[in-house]
Design a protein around this nucleic acid. Sequence first.
DNA 1: CAAAACACTTGATCTGGATCAAGTTTTTAC
DNA 2: GTAAAAACTTGATCCAGATCAAGTGTTTTG
Lengths: 192, 192
Amino acid sequence: MYEIFQKYLDEKTTLTKAESELIQSYAIIKKLRKRQYLLQEGDIWKYNAFITRGCLRTYSVDEKGTEHVNSFSIENWWTGDRESLMFQQPSRFNIDAIEDSELILFTQDNFELLCREIPAFNNMVNAILQKSFIAAQNRIQASLSFTAEEKYLNFISKYPGFASRIPQTMIASYLGMTPETLSRIRKQTAKK
Amino acid sequence: MYEIFQKYLDEKTTLTKAESELIQSYAIIKKLRKRQYLLQEGDIWKYNAFITRGCLRTYSVDEKGTEHVNSFSIENWWTGDRESLMFQQPSRFNIDAIEDSELILFTQDNFELLCREIPAFNNMVNAILQKSFIAAQNRIQASLSFTAEEKYLNFISKYPGFASRIPQTMIASYLGMTPETLSRIRKQTAKK
DNA sequence: CAAAACACTTGATCTGGATCAAGTTTTTAC
DNA sequence: GTAAAAACTTGATCCAGATCAAGTGTTTTG
């Protein structure tokens, strides 16, 4: 498992042998079965989590009991709740596995140490955060200015492959529409 | 003007005299009249911009000519287009002044140098980015799960003071609704 | 391998917020 | 100070997408 993360690191940054070993020494391997929670609402999130295999979803539940999918994360991405981690406050989110998954966790203390000790690691983490922010901005723009159909087409072009491994109900929720609407859109667009 | 930024730095971080002076040596003061552009669609954004006075808005224009407000930024906040800056690509956004404003600009080269040379500065910049990301996540959640009225109430509670200095049309656009809808919501909520 | 649980589709109807239209009020600029 | 331009309000009507309902697949699990 760890090799996948090692490969990711090698692609994104340049590390000395000692640095690589330091990183590995803090890695915690975690396996999740499908439907198992990584984080539940109310818990305080303590980690930085990298996915080596599988697919997770982050969602919240509103007072009516409706689930709202916040994000999907697959292998070679990070997941977690930055807000809960940063402010050490109970999370408003749940994170669970859509498929059997494998993760590498770093406690926040260890992660901060790695950022402090290894500038290249810190730069990598920063670049990821920048890209996440840009992606979030783009999603806001899409949610404000796109029709339901445009949202779906944008989603499948941006994340090809997601549609085939994630249930439609969850994708509909992620896009801010009902499953019925997504079903009808798929029928329509298939025709074209 | 610069004192406002200096005060901001002093609050957010701890710098030596030499570091403060290095930062100041790269600062470019820029004044904007109301309605003046800081960035226009198609331009490549080159700076990191801190607002010492005034209020700016970032917005895009879709193919139908409709404006979509992406964000507002006031004094003691940063603005710019991270995507254009990071990838050196033409911006999809316009940024203009809602009020006469004063900014401090740092070219990206100088800004990166400051991040490299001054770890405390780098940490501050990072913390800001983290908070921006968290705010973006929360906005996504609001836009997916709130009704128009909830969006408005959430906005005024999160950004008190904005409602009085920003035209309603722009707030409506930011919240993803028409000015008419916002007007009716304000009428209703005023009653209560 | 059956049956329960879950995921998806399709149709009928409803509704929150959009659109169109016609004011009134406020701001801007000479 | 006043005319023109923006900004806001209010009403009437419309529609994209929600909701409700009743199916038909398709997994999951004992």
